[in-house]
Amino acid sequence: MASSITGSPTNSTSGAALAEQTPPALPVTNMAHIHKPFKKPGWHASKKTKNLKQIITADKAKEWKANTPTYWNIEALPSMTPQKKYCDITGLEARYTDPKTRLRYHSTEVYQLIKSQPIGVVQQYLGLRNAAVVLK
């Protein structure tokens, strides 16, 4: 059994060129050419897929009893405690905020750096904490 299913992907067809690329010693299993006796013949999983967001949206539209735990209502709530602020560049504690770029920074040295950054980089830094301005 084992010999029939293991083997490099190359020995299924004549591929001398490929054999050089992938050393045949690697015991990988190429599932494309293996007989699967345990499967019901003719049945295949649906190729149509929905992503999680679509599924959740559809689910939300249904009626639910109060207090039923669902995928979307077990999400942690917004925090009620004051948030500490950290330097957007270095991650150290941020004592200041630049009024122009809204970046938080730790020291004058970091401020000098911020001032020299182009707007795109500033937005990327803001994006790290999901605060970038997104124009739609």
Binding site: M1, I5, T29, M31, I34, F38, H44, A45, T49, L52
Partner: peptide, 23 residues
């Protein structure tokens, strides 16, 4: 969310476990 890939993964599990029955 993708049963097709899941099916391939399950196939792989059963093949690797050496199951050669009809179900």
């Amino acid at each position: 969310c993708n049963p097709e890939i899941m099916e391939a993964v399950l196939d792989y599990i059963f093949i690797k476990m050496g199951i050669d029955a009809d179900r």
